[in-house]
Simulated assay, not measured.
Amino acid sequence: MAKKLELGDPAPQFDLREDGGGTLSLASFAGKKLVLYFYPKDDTSGCTMEAIDFNRLLPQFTRAKTAIVGVSPDSCASHEKFKAKHELGLTLLSDETKKMLEAYGVWIEKSMYGRKYMGVERSTFLIGPDGRIARAWRKVKVPGHAEEALAAAKSL
Rank of each mutant, 00 (worst) to 15 (best):
S72T: 09
A30F: 07
T23F: 05
R17M: 15
Y37D: 01
S28T: 09
G20E: 06
E50V: 09
K41Q: 11
L34H: 05
Y39Q: 02
V69L: 08
T62A: 15
K81F: 11
F38H: 10
T48G: 00
S78A: 15
I68E: 04
A64T: 00
E80I: 07
V69F: 02
V71N: 01
D42G: 10
S28G: 08
K65R: 14
A77S: 14
A11D: 00
V71Y: 02
D43I: 12
V35D: 05
G46S: 13
T23M: 03
G22W: 02
T48S: 07
L34I: 13
D53Q: 10
V69K: 02
P12W: 01
T23G: 04
E50C: 08
C47I: 04
L57M: 07
L26M: 01
I52F: 07
V71D: 00
K41W: 03
K33E: 00
S45G: 12
A51I: 09
P10S: 13
K32H: 13
C76Q: 09
I68T: 10
V71T: 04
C47T: 03
N55E: 01
P59D: 04
A67C: 04
K65G: 12
F54W: 10
G46T: 08
N55Y: 06
K41D: 03
S28Y: 01
K32C: 12
V71L: 15
P10E: 13
F54L: 10
E80W: 09
K41F: 03
A30G: 07
S72E: 06
Y39K: 08
P10C: 10
I68C: 14
F14T: 05
L16S: 03
C76A: 15
V69T: 03
P59K: 06
